[in-house]
């Protein structure tokens, strides 16, 4: 069945200490594995790593990767090989909201550098750093397929486009106030700006 999807449910209620998927997450992982021919379940590794990242606090610890290896019945190194190749997987802890500001051509032409500087000033951190309260991590990213609505940034599953300084300020304030109810590594969050 191809119709069922990953990420329909909200994973990650809190930072879990125990390395174990919730029942929902495990059911989704199993469903994902069934999308591929028998014996080829390893194909589901990337989708399952996305779940793991959402389940275990927004990043992939060695233990989290080992756990995914166990689910897929493959060697841990095979998981690490993949996790370390793709930029969406964070192998170090990150803040609750990871701002990824596109810096490639069309975004740069429309002021992406100024957006980055503005966020740095506003949050008091540099690119690559996380705020002391663990709320925000600032990163730069390469073209996110949003060049017509530049400049833009991605946070979790949300695209925030046609950014201005005011929009960024609002975004930061929104994420701060909604912090109590929402966790933005949550894949379910949809752009509301």
């Amino acid at each position: 069945m191809g119709a069922e999807i990953h990420g329909t449910q909200k994973f990650n209620e809190s930072k879990r200490t125990e390395i174990k998927f919730s029942e929902e997450a495990m059911a989704t992982a199993k469903l994902l594995m069934s999308n591929y021919p028998q014996g080829k379940e390893k194909s589901a590794i990337i989708p399952i790593l996305h779940i793991a990242q959402a389940e275990f606090g927004g990043w992939l610890s060695p233990e989290a990767m080992d756990y995914v290896a166990e689910i897929l019945n493959i060697r841990p190194i095979e998981v690490f090989e993949v996790a370390s190749f793709y930029t969406m997987f964070h192998l170090k802890p990150v803040g609750k909201c990871v701002f990824e500001v596109c810096q490639t051509s069309s975004c740069w032409l429309n002021g992406a550098e100024d957006i980055v500087k503005h966020i740095e000033k506003k949050l008091g951190i540099r690119v690559g750093e996380t705020t002391a309260d663990g709320m925000f991590t600032l990163k730069v990213a390469e073209c996110l397929g949003s060049c017509g609505t530049a400049p833009m940034l991605q946070c979790g599953a949300s695209y925030h486009e046609n950014l201005t300084f005011e929009k960024v300020d609002r975004l930061i304030a929104d994420y701060r106030t909604e912090n109590k109810q929402k966790n933005y590594t949550d894949l379910d969050y949809k752009n509301t700006l």
Binding site: G2, I5, N35, S43, H50, Y86, T87, M88, C143
Partner: peptide, 12 residues
């Protein structure tokens, strides 16, 4: 026919 969506993870 079966059709599945497969998400990548950031790699041009």
């Amino acid at each position: 026919l079966d059709c599945h969506v497969h998400v990548g993870a950031g790699a041009y």
